[in-house]
Amino acid sequence: MNNTFRRDNRVGWLMAAPALTGLALFIGLPFLLALILSFTNLKLASPLPLTFVGLQHYARILQDPVFLRALLNNLLFAVVVVPLQTGCALLLALLVNRKLPGMVVFRTLFFLPVIFPFALISVVWMLLYAPGPNGVINSVLELLTFGFWQPQDFLHNQYLALPAIMVVSIWQGAGFQMIVYLAGLQDISEELYEAARLDGANSWQQFWYVTFPCLRNTTLFVVSVTTILSFRLFDQVQIMTKGGPLNATATVVFEAVRAAFERQQIARGSAMTVVFFIIVLCLTVFQRRMVSEDRRVG
């Protein structure tokens, strides 16, 4: 046994070392740097000597109306997108979870947007949202309302820009969550449905008393992942609106990148990054706690 350990010890370290080194240098180190730098006055190409400024950046960003607006936008985004996207995903999963001819094709079509890069999705939807009566979405809405719809410039309207990005995200992400739900649905034992039918449950009752409770952990997972994604929002904003109009679509990550990248304020950007991470951490801990509670009960 001692011999096994000695052999394993050397080989184990050897096998894990490349990955561990990579993680330490490119996740661990920058993560620590974010914490440390957020307490300094670091700016790229700044003549000032590096000094420790304590919580100054945190105090400033939490009073900065643009950053607070960005936090609010992320929150709004999550509040709207999470339930809608989760609902759409569950609906799609229920729809495609049957044996019909061509089902593979339908699943693939619903899933297709997931494999598209955000950057491309954003560019395509900029065209769909084109202002004027010839824009695709404008002309569809005009058709649906029998001509009552007044053409809008969605991405330059401070009330419509954020909802416009929300629609894109829901459309793009629902297929991914659909697959997660589909796996959850297929894990539910057929016996449960048979028992429910014996008790005289109709299909709605079967869904409400069998399907939905069995999908509790899947739903928790989908909801927390989508919430975290809402706070990570960047690509669409950068490409479609640049945070505008009037910061209506600014997000936390967008502001952090803008500070660091456009204004060279590494320290300030790092502080925003830390705030962002604390939000993600809270969401993750919350999800894990909910799931493990369920396991203890079950």
């Binding site: 661990g28 920058p30 974010a34 991470f277 993600v280």
Partner: peptide, 23 residues
């Protein structure tokens, strides 16, 4: 170390982009 690897899974890239840009 495996516990640490699992913990690192929580950190999204956006949370380290700025310091890594500096790095």
């Amino acid at each position: 170390l495996f516990g640490l690897v699992l913990a690192l899974m929580i950190i999204p890239f956006e949370a380290i982009a700025v310091p890594m840009f500096y790095q």
